[in-house]
Amino acid sequence: MAGASKAVVDSRANLPFVYRQYSPEQLRQVLHKMYLIRRFEEGAEECYMRGLIHGTMHLSIGQEASAMGICMPLAEDDQITSTHRGHGHCIAKGAEVSRMFAEFFGKTTGYCKGRGGSMHIADVAKGNLGANGIVAGGIPIAVGAALSSKMMKTGKVVVSFFGDGANNEGAFHEALNMAAIWKLPVIFVCENNGYGMSTSTARSTAVKNIAERAAAYSMPGVIVNGNIFSEVAEASFKAVERARAGEGPTLIESKTYRHRGHSKSDRNRYRTKEEIEDWMANRDPITLFENELRDFGFIDEQGIEAIRDAVAKEIADGIEFAKASPAPEIATLENYVYTEHA
């Protein structure tokens, strides 16, 4: 509890949810991981610019509190399905950045052995069933995982992350309905960053808030400020409790913003520079959380510096690991298409 004055910690009762629910050490870990997500994506972006990573990538910079808040109450064997913008979810669920970098570099040590890349990043051992190249593709899969949990009585809760754009796919509606009629332990998390590629929710979606869709499927629909870690974590905590108690699904709409373009080929012609700068300057989720931690006396400047340094080293080491890892042999081209028989 370096830096936290005793008087402040004793008055935790009046602080927001996470400061009452989790230990200072856990919360400092959260800040660490938020930085890890941010620096991972900045590192990946730089490697891409330098031609070390090919293809494309979708960065979640600006959405870190959402990924961390949702995953906060999850147990290690709870599961998630993720999206094309899935690096943050992956790290929040416990992935190592070294193996993520290795995947981006197309190496055999990567989480998908170099076959998937950024858009299919996964960590099955930690419960991440994978990012997805198909908008809304992961939503029914999460419902299926929740059905397994119920049938196999594992007690697992499943979270499906998706974007605002996904709420207009048929798969979203079909999946929510089934989850509701079968009361499955699944949480639908819409990370509403205002746009599906270039199309604003106002232009794409008939309801003002995506959480309103929940009413059509008789489940709670909750709106949170996705850039405030505590708000997201609190909503997730309640939804997890409800799911574990067998009371069925919840739809959480986490309102947030992506600082970067949609992908590497975006010219940002559908939004203004002022809008982007406003979100970056005034609502950066890491800055907001860091300030809170500092103001509440959970960390001091030195503690923050230590986190930043540790993260920088983790990122540098991860990139080195990826570079030094072997590439797949061409002869293995058709591996993993079907299950290998011993």
Binding site: H54, G106, G114, R115, M119, P328, I330, L333, E334, V337
Partner: peptide
Amino acid sequence: GAETPIPYNPDLEKAT
């Protein structure tokens, strides 16, 4: 094309 989905790794992708 080879009897596989398109892999991400660029050398594998070309070989497909």
